[in-house]
C-alpha cells in the first residue's frame, strides 16, 4: 500500500508546500518560487505515472519489450520550457511593479493603491 502510493503522496506534499508559500508569503519573488515548486511537483506526478516497473527509457533498444510511456515525457518536456518562458514573463512583471511602486511586498502594494 505505502510502496504503491508514496510517490504520489510526496508529490502532493510538495504541491501543498508550494501552495502554502504562494498563499502565505507577501513577497512576489517568493510567491513565484513557491509557484515553481508547485509546477515541478506536477511534472513529477506526470513522470511518475509514465513509469512502468521493469521498463526502460522509451528509446528503441535490441531485446527490450517493456518501455516507459513516452507521451507524458513529451508533455512535460515541452511544459518545462514553456514554464521557464512564462516564469520569465512573470518575473519581468515583478520588475515593472518594483519600478512603479518601489516595493514588491503585497501589503505595501495594497496600501499604495488605497492611498490613490
Amino acid at each position: 500500500m505505502v510502496t504503491d502510493f508514496y510517490n504520489y503522496w510526496i508529490v502532493i506534499a510538495l504541491m501543498m508546500i508550494g501552495f502554502f508559500i504562494v498563499i502565505v508569503q507577501g513577497n512576489l519573488v517568493k510567491k513565484l518560487i513557491g509557484l515553481n515548486i508547485f509546477q515541478t511537483s506536477v511534472f513529477i506526478f506526470y513522470i511518475s505515472i509514465a513509469k512502468v516497473e521493469g521498463g526502460t527509457a522509451p528509446i528503441l533498444t535490441e531485446g527490450v519489450v517493456l518501455y516507459s510511456n513516452p507521451l507524458p515525457h513529451v508533455l512535460i518536456l515541452t511544459a518545462i520550457v514553456v514554464g521557464i518562458a512564462t516564469m520569465a514573463l512573470a518575473l519581468s512583471l515583478v520588475v515593472r511593479i518594483h519600478k512603479a511602486y518601489g516595493t514588491i511586498e503585497e501589503e505595501e502594494l495594497q496600501e499604495r493603491d488605497h492611498e490613490c
Binding site: 513565484l32 513522470i47 509514465a50
Partner: peptide, 26 residues
C-alpha cells in the same frame, strides 16, 4: 523514472536558467 529527455531539460532549466533569472531580479 526513465525520462531521460525530460531530465536534460529540467537540469538546464531548473538548475540553470531559472535561478539565474531570479538572481538578476533580486
Amino acid at each position: 523514472m526513465d525520462a531521460v529527455d525530460v531530465a536534460f531539460t529540467e537540469a538546464a532549466v531548473g538548475a540553470g536558467v531559472f535561478p539565474l533569472l531570479l538572481l538578476a531580479v533580486l
